[in-house]
Design a protein around this nucleic acid. Structure first.
Ligand SMILES: [Mn+2]
Ligand SMILES: [Mn+2]
Ligand SMILES: [Zn+2]
Ligand SMILES: [Zn+2]
Lengths: 148, 148
DNA sequence: TTCTGAAACAAGAACTACTCTCGTTTGATA
DNA sequence: TATCAAACGAGAGTAGTTCTTGTTTCAGAA
């Protein structure tokens, strides 16, 4: 089982042109065995059990390499800082992955009842959040003319 | 204009049982004039133009007071720390506002086409993110029995 | 298999965003 | 106007993350 996971990782590294290092393999194995949504610190703690000499910096760097290669995803938009919404109107947002600006979207009619029904009954819902992530017009180098 | 904003703020403070301090008034005016989604640091910079002696700590504290009172909202969920998603399956998440755990939700059929259509044409969409925020079963003190 | 240069590594300093502590000032109530 | 709890400013402290530097390791060439 561990063998197939290891060879699967080596295959992935060949595809993505990544060097297969011992540290990356151990981090990958740990990630594939963690069933929740771990923080870098939690991954570091787990990996240290198997490889006590690994540094936290290497864990961060490895995670960024894996994210860039698409081996894993991040679940937290991770803007790094609190952002305030002074506008009380109900609206959705577009988050630019490059410049981190947040753009208001025009109101749209999305039926979120199926999503609400997927929440366990003993959970208390505060609100549903719909957002779109991508690259904004400014960062993608294209602009709409004022009358478009 | 400034007068009505000031008296509106005093009204809000009376309703929410908040002391009306000069610092809070200046922060409130700044917020209501900022049309994007400012960070605490940006708010601090702006407010310092009018009130150079204000401290960054006061800006943070004031924002938390305003958030708790519902005068403003925050637009960035989970800006605290990076969280990894090792699970490649498509699914949505529940974010607990108290313990910050992230729970996978059962797949549900939500039609996001109207939301996609609200994105300006020169923006590049990476992905749409649907999530629910609230209090998880553990934090709300209720548990479902195993056979519920 | 051995050699070699580039990439990855560990250690720890540095940095950013945020919170806490404490002595002083201020605003709401009497 | 007097009182005192609440709010403030200054700055130390903390958590999460990135950067720097010298050493080690990996992948391709010999
Ligand atoms: Mn907005
Ligand atoms: Mn998940
Ligand atoms: Zn952008
Ligand atoms: Zn919780």
């Amino acid at each position: 089982m561990g063998q197939t996971l290891d060879s699967q990782f080596q295959q992935l590294c060949r595809e993505k042109q990544l060097a297969v290092t011992h540290q990356r393999l151990v981090v990958y194995r740990a990630l594939m065995q963690m069933c929740d949504h771990p923080s870098p610190e939690q991954i570091y703690e787990r990996v240290r059990g198997e490889l006590p000499s690994i540094s936290l910096g290497t864990v961060y760097k490895t995670l960024h390499v894996f994210l860039a290669a698409g081996l894993i995803r991040e679940v937290s938009p991770h803007h790094g800082s609190l952002r305030i919404e002074p506008n009380a109107e109900h609206h959705c947002h577009f988050f630019c992955l490059q410049c981190h600006t947040i753009t208001d979207l025009e109101p749209s009619e999305v039926d979120v009842v199926p999503l609400m029904n997927s929440v366990p009954e003993n959970f208390q819902v505060d609100r549903v959040s719909l957002e779109v992530r991508g690259v904004c017009g400014h960062c993608s180098g294209s602009f709409v003319s004022a009358d478009a």
